[in-house]
Every structure is written in structure tokens, then in C-alpha cells.
Design a protein around this nucleic acid. Structure first.
Lengths: 114, 114
DNA sequence: CTGGATCCGCAATGATACTG
DNA sequence: CAGTATCATTGCGGATCCAG
């Protein structure tokens, strides 16, 4: 079990950032263009979208295909590897949904205790 | 599925930091004292251990019990809620182990392509 | 032993302007 | 449209000193 320490840390350093998971979610429905992603992911800056997409492309999680038209059309999509990430991510999401209220309750108790 | 966006982000902001997962791992075997944790988790500073433990205690993931002896003895342990986190974390760990080589290969391909 | 308090550096993120 | 480049800002994390 402690064998999982290092890989978990590596994975978290990949998808634990502020935007990667949201990008995975946004791409679940199929390929999306750059500005489609920008609009879909509320609050992300152009810069961070570019950087995060690059990193995920480097890790083989997403693919980037350029259609040489004018104006340029660039589509991002989950790779097979990227799609497999959905499962553990959704496990985490399910945990979060199931325990959201308990966490909030714990926080309020803690804050009240001072 | 997109319902999971917000909770996943919240969860990641909790356990996506540099040390939380390692603390969960370290506490899997039972309660640990402050300095036991410090020794078990290589590279963590006193400050970050304190801060991370506080945050996790606030979220109800771990408990902190003080034995009023001299010298003081403080034990940290996973709560029931904290133990349930192990499952999705291990799912992530398993994904990481299974796909580590594919990720490295993708990175090398990407870097080679320049 | 178990922290709290303080200072500091660096990396991550954001805002803005510019380009093919 | 899809970026790149630059600057400003913020917060995380480390180092150090101090205390019950």
C-alpha cells in the first residue's frame, strides 16, 4: 500500500493543479476547440488554459490536432489514456459528493470550538 | 457527471496539496505522534506538518488527542471519514502505477518532437 | 516534545498587450 | 481563432527562533 505513495504523489502533481480536472471533465463529451474550452471552464485565463493543455498533452492525456484553415481551428480531445483517468477522478468526485456535508459540519464544529 | 466538478475541485484542494496524501498513508497503520509523522514523512518541515494536520483536523479527516503528560504526547489518527478517503486515493494510486510507463513514454515522445 | 511566530524565496497564477 | 510574451501578484513552503 505504501508502494502507492510515490505514484499517487506523481499523479496528484499532474491532476492536482487548479485546472486539469476541469479540462478532463470538459473533454468528456468529445473534442473541443480552444475557445470552447475557455468558455466552458469559467474563470480560467488564456495563459493557464494553454499551459495546462500543453502539460496534459505532454503527459499523453489529451491530443491536439490543428486544422490548417483560416481562421485556425485547433481541437483538443482525450486520448485513451486520458479517458482511463475519468474512473479514478469520478471515484474521488463520488467521495466528495457523499461526504461534502460531513466535511462542512466538521469545519463548523472546528471553527466554533475556536 | 459535471455535477462532480465542484466537489472534485474541493476535494483536490484538500488532498491535492503537497503533504495530505502522505499523512493519510502514514496514519493508515494506526495513530502516530507528531514527531513520528515528521520522521515518517521525509522532507516535511515542522511548519507544514502542523499546518496540514490542522487543516485535515478541521475537515474532520483526522483526530488530535493530547495526553497531558510531560513531555506532552499528541497523537493523530484517521477518523472514520478519513479512512473512507483511502479508497479513492488508492484508486488513483492504482491508476498511477498502471500507467506510469505510458506517461513517461508520452513525455519522451513529446520532448523529442520539440 | 509539540508546537507558535516570523521572515523570506520561489513557483504558480492572473492580467494585459501583442501576433500570425 | 489560437496562441506568445511580459509584468504583477499571490500563496505555498522552507528556515529559523522562541515557548509551554
Amino acid at each position: 500500500m505504501l508502494d502507492a505513495c510515490r505514484p499517487v504523489r506523481l499523479t496528484l502533481s499532474r491532476i492536482g493543479d487548479k485546472w486539469s480536472v476541469l479540462i478532463v471533465m470538459a473533454l468528456c463529451g468529445g473534442p473541443r476547440r480552444f475557445n470552447e474550452l475557455k468558455r466552458a471552464i469559467d474563470g480560467i485565463s488564456q495563459r493557464m488554459l494553454t499551459l495546462t493543455l500543453r502539460g496534459m498533452e505532454r503527459d499523453g492525456l489529451i491530443s491536439r490536432t490543428v486544422h490548417p484553415t483560416t481562421p485556425p481551428r485547433v481541437e483538443y480531445a482525450l486520448t485513451d489514456l486520458g479517458r482511463t483517468l475519468r474512473e479514478p477522478i469520478e471515484a474521488l468526485g463520488q467521495w466528495a459528493v457523499e461526504n461534502e456535508s460531513r466535511i462542512r459540519a466538521a469545519q463548523e464544529r472546528f471553527d466554533a470550538a475556536g
